[in-house]
């Protein structure tokens, strides 16, 4: 008897998603699958709907048509309670980190935990906070306010806050935007470490090719509201598509 290698499970399935803002149609029938324990990078120019797509996945926005299935559930058809339950499994790291600026780092990290894991003791909460802070390498910042942190540190704390609920899926919105090259490399490494340590499946929105190459198992090119090319980094940029080539030509790859 031969052992059959099972195919990786699809954790996010997007089919024919359309989204308009007024007369401007951002997504024009996007199709995409995210497999379990995969890092999928969505590349595209500014304003092409990359962030809109992950906001639809997390239920912050609703698509005009098409379906978005996350962990087997159609997001647009979920009620408020079901959506909250789903969100426990879908972490979202914001472009500007979106830390609660009136709370210390500790309070920021405790916030989702205290509200969603009510059975935890104070000791267990402290342990969870220390674990995720250690994972992002910022244990020393625990008592600091967000305003006292650098841009890179804020990104890391944002990721830590997302990780504290131990989600199955991570959505990163422009994780390296506005950071210096060294910090970008550190964030790229962190994304890979998170996947290895927490076994997450991730969608990484970026227009930074270094980030795409370092973190992505697959790259999905979003052009004119649709995914025009999906494959490994080399496959995508071996394309003769005149809309994809400039992306590579104008980016500096380490």
């Amino acid at each position: 008897m031969t052992a059959q290698k099972s195919l990786p499970e699809i954790v996010i399935s997007i089919r024919g998603v359309k989204k308009s803002f007024g007369d401007y149609e951002v997504l024009k029938g996007a199709d995409l699958d995210l497999y379990e324990r995969e890092n999928l990078v969505v590349l595209g120019r500014s304003g092409t709907g990359k962030s809109v797509l992950i906001k639809i996945i997390s239920g912050l926005l609703t698509q005009d048509s098409g379906t978005v299935n996350v962990l087997g559930k159609d997001v647009s058809k979920l009620g408020p309670k079901e959506l909250l339950a789903l969100r426990l499994n879908v972490g979202f790291s914001f472009q500007n980190s979106a830390l609660y600026d009136s709370m210390t780092v500790r309070k920021n990290l405790e916030f989702p935990l205290v509200r969603n894991r009510k059975h935890l003791t104070k000791g267990e909460i402290n342990y969870a906070v220390e674990t995720v802070l250690d994972a992002v390498g910022l244990s020393q910042t625990i008592h600091q306010m967000p305003s006292e942190l650098s841009g890179g540190q804020r990104k890391r704390i944002g990721i830590a806050r997302t990780l504290i609920l131990q989600p199955q899926i991570m959505l990163y919105d422009e994780p390296t935007a506005g950071l210096d090259p060294i910090t970008c490399i550190e964030i790229n490494s962190l994304i890979n470490e998170v996947q290895e340590r927490f076994h997450t499946s991730s969608i990484i929105i970026t227009h930074d090719l270094t980030c795409a190459k370092e973190t992505g198992d697959r790259i999905a090119m979003l052009l004119d509201g649709q995914f025009q090319k999906i494959g490994t980094f080399d496959e995508v940029f071996a394309s003769d598509d005149e809309r994809i080539k400039p992306f590579y030509d104008y980016n500096f790859i380490v």
Partner: peptide, 17 residues
């Protein structure tokens, strides 16, 4: 200010109302 800096969205996606 919380709305502008996406802190309200951050609460929502972290399963908090």
């Amino acid at each position: 200010s919380m709305k502008v800096t996406e802190q309200i969205d951050a609460m929502e996606v972290s399963a908090t109302n």
